[in-house]
Design a protein around this nucleic acid. Sequence first.
DNA 1: GATGAATGAGTGTTCATTCAT
DNA 2: GATGAATGAACACTCATTCAT
Lengths: 181, 181, 181, 181
Amino acid sequence: MAERPLRADAVRNRAKVLRVAYETFAAEGLGVPIDEIARRAGVGAGTVYRHFPTKDLLFQAIVQDRVRQLTDSARELVEQDPGEAVYRFLLRMVDEAAVDQGLVDAIAGVGIDIETVLPDAERDFLGVIAELIAQGQRAGTVRSDVDVADVKTLMVGLQAMRRYRGDIAKAFQVVRDGLTP
Amino acid sequence: MAERPLRADAVRNRAKVLRVAYETFAAEGLGVPIDEIARRAGVGAGTVYRHFPTKDLLFQAIVQDRVRQLTDSARELVEQDPGEAVYRFLLRMVDEAAVDQGLVDAIAGVGIDIETVLPDAERDFLGVIAELIAQGQRAGTVRSDVDVADVKTLMVGLQAMRRYRGDIAKAFQVVRDGLTP
Amino acid sequence: MAERPLRADAVRNRAKVLRVAYETFAAEGLGVPIDEIARRAGVGAGTVYRHFPTKDLLFQAIVQDRVRQLTDSARELVEQDPGEAVYRFLLRMVDEAAVDQGLVDAIAGVGIDIETVLPDAERDFLGVIAELIAQGQRAGTVRSDVDVADVKTLMVGLQAMRRYRGDIAKAFQVVRDGLTP
Amino acid sequence: MAERPLRADAVRNRAKVLRVAYETFAAEGLGVPIDEIARRAGVGAGTVYRHFPTKDLLFQAIVQDRVRQLTDSARELVEQDPGEAVYRFLLRMVDEAAVDQGLVDAIAGVGIDIETVLPDAERDFLGVIAELIAQGQRAGTVRSDVDVADVKTLMVGLQAMRRYRGDIAKAFQVVRDGLTP
DNA sequence: GATGAATGAGTGTTCATTCAT
DNA sequence: GATGAATGAACACTCATTCAT
C-alpha cells in the first residue's frame, strides 16, 4: 500500500491549492466556495477534490500545515535565553494569530475540533511548549505552579485578545506579571 | 411617531423566537436555517421574518438582548464589596461565555461587528465596567495603570480560554495576580 | 339574497383601495404585494381581502371600473361633430393608455382575459364604438368596409404604439389616412 | 482574451435550455420557475444557472437570440421586389409576434427595457428596416414622410393587434393604405 | 367590520460534490 | 491526472391568503 510518489505537477498543484486556500480562508472566512479556491489557484475544481476529498479535509490539511510551522517556529527558541524564551514564544504565537486572522474563529465557529482530528500535530506542539516552560521555571522567570495546559490556555486567550484588539501590550504585561513568581 | 404596542400574541411569538434562536445559535452555530428556528419555536417561517426581517437582524437582536442582560448583571455588583467586585464580574462574564458557547465566535466568524451595529449597548456595558475598575483601584485591589479597554480585552481573552477549556481556575489566578498591584 | 348596503366606512375603504390599487398597479406593475396596497390605502390587509377576495378579483374590479369610465367618456362624443368623433375617440383612448401605463400589458402578461371575465363591460364599450363608426361612415370620413372589431383592433394597436413611443402623431396620421375612404 | 470554446455537451445544454426557456416563457409567461425550465430541458437547476447566472440574464439571452433571428429574416428581403419588401417584412414581423405570444408583453410587464440592455441587436435591426423603407420610397410604394422610427412604431402596433386578435387582415390593409403615397 | 399577525408553499440562487470528457 | 460541466439539496426570503383579536 505504499503510496506511489505524486507526479511533479500534482505536487505543485497540491501545494498551490493549500497555500491559496490558507490565505483565502484566513482572510475571508470559511464561506469561500471551493470553486473560488480552485479559480484562484488556477486549477479546476476537480483537482482540488482529488487532493482533498472534502472541504473538511482541506481545512484539516491547512491546520496541520500551520501547526507544523508553529511547532518548528517554537522549537528554535529552545535553549535560547532560557528565562525569556517562553515569553518570546507567547508573543510570537500572538503575532501568528494576527496573521491567521479569522481562521481559528472560523474553524471553531464551524465546529471542527482540532485536537480530535490532528492528535499528532497537537502532541508535538505541546511537547515543545512544555520544554519552554521547564526552562523558564529553572531560570526563575515562570512560577512553578503552571503547566503546559495552563500556558496553552493563556496562549489561546492572548490570541483572542489580539484578534479583538490590535495592541495588547498592556494585557500581555498583565499576563506576564501574573506568570512571574 | 410612537409605534403602537404589539398585540399580545405577537409579543409572545417575538419573545419565543428570540429565545429559541438564541439557544439554537449558541448551541449549534449560525448555520442553523431559519426554517428550523421557526419549527422549534412552533411558528411559521414567515413569522420569524415578520419580527426579524433578515437573519442578520435576528443575530443583532439576540446579541443586543444578551449584552443588555450582561450589563444589568454587571450593574448589580457596583458598590458591593468594592475590592472584589471587578474580579467577580470577570468570573461571571466568563461563566456567561460558557453559556453562550460558540455564539460570540460564530458571530465574529461571520463578520458581524458588534460595536458598529450596537453602539448604545456597547457604551452602557463599558460604562459599568469602568465603574467596577475605579472601585477596585480605590480599594487597592487593581493596579492603577489599567483602564476599561484593557479589562475588556482581558475579559475577551478569559472568555476564549473558558470556551477552549472548561476549567480555567489557574489561568484566572494568573490574570488576577497580574492585575493586582 | 339582496346584499345589505355597506356601512359608510366600508364604502370609503372599498373606494380607497380600488383607487390606490389602480394607481399602483398601473405605475408599478402587478408585482406589488397586497400588503403594500393595503399600507398605501391606510387599511389592513384583511380589509383588502374582505372587499376583493383574491388578487385576481381585485384586478377585475380595477379593469371593470376603468372600462366603465372609458365607455362613459366615449359616450359623450356621440353626435358631436359626427365626422370627427371616431378619430377624437381614438386619440382619447390612446391618451388613456398613457395614463394606464403598463396596466394593460401587465394584465395581459399575467394571463387575464378581459373579454371572458367582464363580458358586460366589454359589450357596452363595443356598443358605443359601433355608434361612432356608423356616424363617421354616414358623414363620409370613415371607409365603409371597417366594423367595430376592426376599429377596436386598431385602437389596441395605437395604444401599444403610444406605450412604446410617447409621440405617435405620424403613426396616428397614417392610420387615419388608411381609415379615410 | 478569447474565451475557450465550450465543451460539446455544454454547448448542447446551453442551446437546449435557451430553446426550452424561449418556448416556455413565450407560451406561459415569465412566471415559470427556473426549476421547471430545468426540468423540461432535462438538466439540473444548477446547469441553467451556470449558463445564465440570473433569470434576467436568461431573458436577455432569449431576446437577443430572437432579435438576431428577426434581423436575419428581414435582411433576406432586401432588394427582393423593392416595392413590396417593406410590407412583406411587416407581415412577417406580425406573424413572428404570434409565435412569440406573450413574450414581449411579459418582458415589458416585468420592466426589462430591450433597447437599454441590447443596444447592438437593436441597432442592426433598425438598420435593415431603414433599408427596406428607402427601397419602398424609391419604388413609390411608401409615402416619403415616414422614417424608420415611424415604421417601427407601426410594427409594434401591428404586433399588438395580432396578439389581441388572430386575424388582422383588415387592420393591416388600413395601415398599408395609410402608408401608401 | 377592521386589523395585522400568522401561515407555509414557492422561488431565485448557491455550492459541495460527482463525473463525463 | 486535470478539467470544468452537471447535479440537486439547501437556504434565505416573499407573499397570497387565513384567522384570532
